[in-house]
């Protein structure tokens, strides 16, 4: 599984990193960074949960 992060749209609300710190972090400018190019199988549910809570829809799980 891959996640697409729209860094232009990200406003740094940080909910993704609260929900799934193993998948998402914020860089020094508080813009989302993905920890994995390919989300490990055991983190897929967390990746989905983190993408879902993005308030500005900047994260999209790719099939």
């Amino acid at each position: 599984m891959q996640v697409h992060a729209d860094r232009d749209r990200c406003e740094g609300h940080g909910l993704c990193a609260d929900v799934a710190p193993e998948v998402y972090e914020l860089d020094d400018d508080a813009v989302v960074v993905l920890r994995h190019d390919q989300v490990p199988a055991e983190l897929e549910r967390k990746a989905e949960a983190g993408a879902r809570v993005c308030p500005v829809a900047a994260l999209r799980v790719l099939p």
């Binding site: 809570v53 308030p55 500005v56």
Partner: peptide, 18 residues
């Protein structure tokens, strides 16, 4: 329930929710 829609969502999601 962090996915609630009280602040709206996406394009017009509340900018001041923080």
């Amino acid at each position: 329930p962090l996915d609630h829609l009280a602040f709206g969502y996406a394009t017009h999601g509340c900018a001041g929710q923080g």
